[in-house]
Design a protein around this nucleic acid. Structure first.
Lengths: 213, 213
DNA sequence: GTCTATAAATGGATAGAC
DNA sequence: GTCTATCCATTTATAGAC
């Protein structure tokens, strides 16, 4: 009411920032409380423990990513506009990257998140399938059923792990460049299925994304 | 000499098994010692701590995967035989999957492994590039320079993260089927660049791999 | 809602005997 | 090389005052 941000929300915000920066495993509840300049006891009043914080953060993430992933299922996008969708997905994952950086560890300690996360992966795959189907209906790409299925899986995996791959392989730290790179790679997955001279499309993409950096 | 396995090696073997099963973060030095029925003090005689164990395991992995990845750079493989190479890479990663399941966490605590791991990723990419180049020379595929670069990156990422993606998305636990699936997906990445009717090659792959299960 | 104080549990690490 | 015993640090978690 007074415009003062609630402690609960401050905890979530700070925890997210710390998790992303230092890695979830390296951050203790005491540290979170310390940064916020509140007592550990106070923190435990709001959340039963670190797992509860993680689950609350996952709630946020789940809701946002669901909205993003559901959008393309209803309306159909042109191939040129698809990169915006991919971009948004990467941004969303980037905002909650602590989760993706320690997937198995977190899912082992928060078992109830496992089926929910699995469902998100399947939604990603469905969205990819849906996009590909609509692109094909518009004649923007041509591919067989088997190709579409396999491509959709790889697409979902790409969206899920590309950011991590680049941060590990290169010393690159500029998140925006990493994301741009991921969008370019995603579009290059589709390129071979665009009718006409394949290399034309590839060149267009290359020029476009190298201009971005 | 007497045929008795050295304690040091038993520690490494047991640690690897526990790490893969329960996740590295969930396994303590005390637990490893407990399973081996040796004292924690004894374990600390052989390794300064858990990090030392992890680094020793990484030494093993690094040596093996280097051999695997270096092989195709020298000799050139036919496209039909390439899947064997991919299969071996997946098997190797599968054997040390604890590492891939908590990449960022481990690299934060063992900073000296970071550049070594980054180097492996780059080697993966070089190997992929080399394979694609030789396939093109043989006329087995045709693609532009930009396509080849992008494909090699995605290929490396696929090899690195596919196993994790499938274990998370599906409830599938049969590691052999997961690996077969990964090989199929990898081959489907190359399929569009095979000259002639694309869908022919895709169908061949599909039949071949569905017969495997 | 928030604090202080403190309990309880765990995991990492070492000293010294055998 | 291996064990027992023990210590220290960290983290989670709770009780009770304000």
């Amino acid at each position: 009411m007074t415009g003062k941000v609630k402690t609960r929300d401050r905890i979530l915000k700070t925890a997210l920032a710390l998790f992303n920066e230092e890695g979830e495993a390296q951050v203790s509840t005491v540290e979170i409380a310390g940064v916020l300049e509140i007592s550990p006891g106070n923190l435990y009043y709001h959340f039963k423990g670190k797992e509860a914080i993680i689950e609350a953060l996952f709630d946020e993430f789940e809701e946002e990513i669901r909205q993003v992933l559901s959008a393309p299922i209803n309306r159909s996008l042109s191939i040129e506009d698809n990169w915006i969708f991919i971009y948004i997905v990467f941004e969303e994952i980037n905002d909650f990257r602590f989760f993706y950086n320690n997937l198995t560890g977190i899912l082992e300690r928060c078992p109830n998140l496992r089926p929910r996360f699995a469902k998100l992966l399947r939604l990603k795959e469905e969205t990819a399938t849906s996009i590909l189907a609509s692109l094909e209906q518009d004649g923007a790409i041509t591919c067989s059923r088997a190709e579409r299925t396999a491509l959709a899986s790889r697409f979902a995996a790409h969206l899920t792990f590309w950011l991590q791959f680049v941060s590990l392989a290169a010393s690159e730290t500029d998140r925006r460049r990493i994301i741009n790179n991921g969008v370019y790679s995603a579009m290059m997955m589709i390129a071979p299925y665009v009718p006409g001279d394949r290399s034309d499309f590839a060149e267009i993409l290359k020029d476009y994304f190298s201009a971005q950096n």
